[in-house]
């Protein structure tokens, strides 16, 4: 029942968000696109760090690989950028397999540093790709995005310029990706595998004793999040339109912000990233006139959350409310009144 209400509210929010390109100004669409992409990255990182215990500081590797592959398929092979997005996600996932073989040999803090080093290797290697501008990068040809599948239809539907139609398209795709990921996470975390994962997080020895294989589950999560992160990276750079190794593999933009978003919202809770991304967006808007002050604020809030409220804003809220509007566990099967009567002597 509670889940149904939450689901209906979620659906209403999604419909409202889907109408933004129709009703709202273009600048809002662009802003919300960034927010949705950060949400996608945050959901992925939360799944990794909050549920699988894999504290990666190298997720920008998959953002950058997705983006670079999309650029390569579009510029070098003349494909539709949307096909490039899909290929970008697949290549990011393929790359995560050797990364996992390397990084899974390291535990805890070593894992964080290992993934970071891998991301830096990726940044420097893609900087050697002369056809895509080497270290200085390159821009996506304007025609490529304007001739993207569906842009014409959107143009006619909304009656806007081609550039605005591209913004609307990428926005809807980001919304779709975020919604699918949210639903996917919920279903996955309530599934047999997801419960196993949470059991491993809470007590690895007990989980293994009932037959859960931690390494397999963690590897699966690592691969899936690499796929979604790659998709999101490719989508981001369609909208940004320009790529360079430093921008595509930015530790600050694609991992540091994301970590703060998850920590502030509530690590290890499913709605945490949503709350966190709202706080992040609010802070950025509020302090936009003061340069990097919002980064200082973000860092201080992150530290305060870790000191005083480990489970973030959402975790704190649940504790206050006393009930969880979006429970990940399963309710115990309720007995019918007849069963209870039969049990009585």
């Amino acid at each position: 029942m509670k889940t149904l209400v939450t689901g209906l509210i979620g659906l209403a929010v999604m419909v409202a968000l889907a109408l933004v390109p129709v009703l709202g100004p273009r600048i809002l669409v662009q802003d919300l696109f960034k927010v949705l992409c950060l949400l996608v990255l945050a959901l992925n990182w939360n799944l990794l760090a909050g549920f699988a215990g894999l504290v990666s500081v190298g997720q920008q590797a998959f953002v950058g690989v997705g983006a670079y592959v999309m650029f390569a398929t579009t510029i070098l092979w003349g494909w539709d950028p949307l096909a490039g997005v899909l290929v970008g996600g697949v290549v990011a996932m393929a790359l995560s397999i050797p990364v996992a073989f390397f990084a899974f040999r390291l535990n805890g803090a070593y894992f964080a540093i290992g993934t970071w080093a891998v991301a830096d290797i990726a940044r420097l290697s893609f900087g050697q790709w002369r056809a895509l501008g080497g270290g200085t990068g390159t821009a996506l040809p304007r025609d490529a995005t304007r001739e993207m599948l569906g842009v014409d239809a959107v143009r006619e539907l909304l009656g806007v310029s081609a550039a605005a139609a591209v913004d609307a398209m990428t926005y809807w795709l980001a919304l779709l990706l975020a919604s699918a990921l949210l639903l996917g996470c919920w279903l996955f975390l309530r599934s047999r595998m997801g419960l196993g994962l949470q059991a491993v997080r809470d007590n690895p020895v007990a989980a293994q004793s009932v037959g859960v294989d931690p390494t397999r589950l963690k590897a699966l999560v690592f691969l899936l999040t690499a796929f979604a992160t790659g998709l999101c990276g490719a989508l981001l750079f369609i909208q940004i339109g320009r790529i360079s190794p430093d921008a595509a593999f930015s530790l600050l933009d694609w991992t540091a912000f994301v970590i703060f978003i998850v920590v502030i919202g509530g690590i290890g809770t499913l709605p945490g990233p949503i709350v966190g991304v709202l706080v992040f967006y609010g802070l950025q808007r509020l302090l936009s006139d003061y340069g990097t002050v919002y980064l200082i604020a973000l860092g201080l809030i992150g530290i305060a959350v870790m000191l005083f409220a480990r489970r973030g804003l959402w975790g704190g809220l649940i504790d206050r409310l006393g009930f969880d509007p979006l429970p990940l566990g399963h309710a115990a099967p309720q007995k019918s009144p007849r069963d209870i009567q039969e049990e009585r002597p």
């Binding site: 760090a49 805890g108 690590i267 200082i296 973000l298 860092g299 201080l300 530290i303």
Partner: peptide, 19 residues
């Protein structure tokens, strides 16, 4: 739990850099 110290020092890093 290795996560809290990792995240606190990460926050500290961003704060020092931007200050």
């Amino acid at each position: 739990d290795i996560l809290p110290p990792l995240l606190v020092t990460f926050g500290l890093s961003v704060v020092i850099q931007n200050v």
